[in-house]
Design a protein around this nucleic acid. Structure first.
Lengths: 231, 231
DNA sequence: GGCCAAGTGTGAATTGGTTCACAAAAACAG
DNA sequence: CTGTTTTTGTGAACCAATTCACACTTGGCC
């Protein structure tokens, strides 16, 4: 397990990039490092939210679970981004669960330390405003897709999204080396595992994509894109 | 049409309540007042968003419309609250439409004026963070309801919500003097007008509520509450 | 009053997607 | 290598909600 360079991560992160190196040093002293194993719960909905985290390594799944046990995944937070800001900022409970995906290293900042820091560094507050605006826009999109788009459109969009962030271009098409099970794909677009399966094979039958173990290759991204933007 | 006291409204609003009176005076000079008629469009999705507004009088409907013409209403912003903060803060396009409901008076602040003000007044930035957190929580709720709750649950919840904000207690129950058409109710909970109609009459038949012209009286709010929290 | 537009009421047909129940295939642990 | 667990594949039955089609009511307006 390699040592993670917190200094570099902090400098790179938009939130803190404007600060003087000395100020970031200060922040480093305030925060702590925590490690989580794959599948380990980081925090749970309803917990008192007195810290925020920055992903140094691994990914964090942010999700909610219904009474009947259905899960809806809001986001998979990649390294270099933060999570838990909302509860930190308003001091209320966490609105969602956070679970480690893979071995994770997080840099954590406690509310009691960070709020005073924020008051001394207004530029950071302004940056945070931008972060929250981004979240709000993402949420709007999510709502819009849920309300207006049917399963094929939501799935197509997800695939294109994954392709853009985790995909690699190959002669045949864009290969997504995703280790997402069909169940997890379903949880990302609010649909059942079976429906994901059926839609994927339907598209495979049409030659739109190829399915291997743990990877999907988009053969006709343009066609999928059309599907993502229709009903 | 009565004169609206901008000074009082600004002082009352959480966002600016901490400021010195003199600073609020300054803000008053920066902003302008605009009036809109019932149904008039205030801004449209995709517009450049270079201002935010504060509702002084009337209500503002925030909604998006799908390709097929379906409308989804995110919020009805009441007097004393603000709208359009997101686009103002990040300088990007508006994510939704805003339409006046009833005769509206808005206090508007331009981005070019407000951002410098924000930099001089960090407390306001911190307050804005709280506002955005509130929005994010509301959005989370919205997503959760869309993804997990069926029509009766969503409708029950909406009615209880309306009862809490616009209702008056009567001997028979809680009376909601809403001037919402069934279509508009549907747009608030992402469902068709017909389905709203059928569900309301089903509940009326069960004695859960009473329907008059432009008003609904909840006879058994407790039962509705149970419905709102089940599947 | 009488007309037109907006809103409401209602049933039948259709549909998109879920649920269920299982079989087959991989992945994993010992 | 072998049994166990997780994931995938698939069809049939089911269901909630939409769509469609149309009648009825109400309100506002000239």
């Amino acid at each position: 397990m390699p040592l993670i360079d917190k200094r570099a991560a902090l400098a790179q992160l938009g939130l803190f990039s404007q600060l003087e190196a000395a100020e970031r040093e200060q922040l480093l002293m305030l925060g702590g490092e925590r490690r989580f194993h794959d599948g380990q719960m980081i925090f749970q909905r309803g917990d008192a939210g007195n810290s925020m985290m920055l992903v140094l390594r691994g990914q964090v799944k942010i999700s909610i679970v219904s009474d009947e046990g259905k899960e809806l995944v809001f986001a998979l937070v990649p390294p270099g981004e933060c999570l838990g800001e909302i509860a930190l900022l308003d001091g209320q409970d966490r609105t969602a669960d956070a679970v480690a995906v893979g071995e994770c290293v997080l840099f954590t900042l406690a509310r009691s330390d960070f709020i005073p820091f924020l008051e001394r560094h207004p530029q950071v507050a302004i940056r945070l405003l931008a972060v929250l605006c981004g979240r709000l826009r993402a949420n709007s999109d999510f709502i819009e897709r849920l309300a207006f788009q049917n399963l094929p459109a939501r799935l197509a969009r997800l695939l294109l999204n994954l392709a853009a962030t985790h995909g690699s271009t190959t002669p045949a098409g864009i290969r997504i080396a995703c280790k997402l099970s069909q169940q997890e794909i379903g949880n990302l677009i609010a649909t059942s595992r079976e429906s994901v399966n059926k839609q994927l094979r339907a598209w495979r039958a049409q030659g739109l994509l190829e399915i291997e173990r743990g990877a999907i290759t988009l053969l006709q991204p343009a066609t999928l894109n059309r599907l993502a933007h229709s009903a």
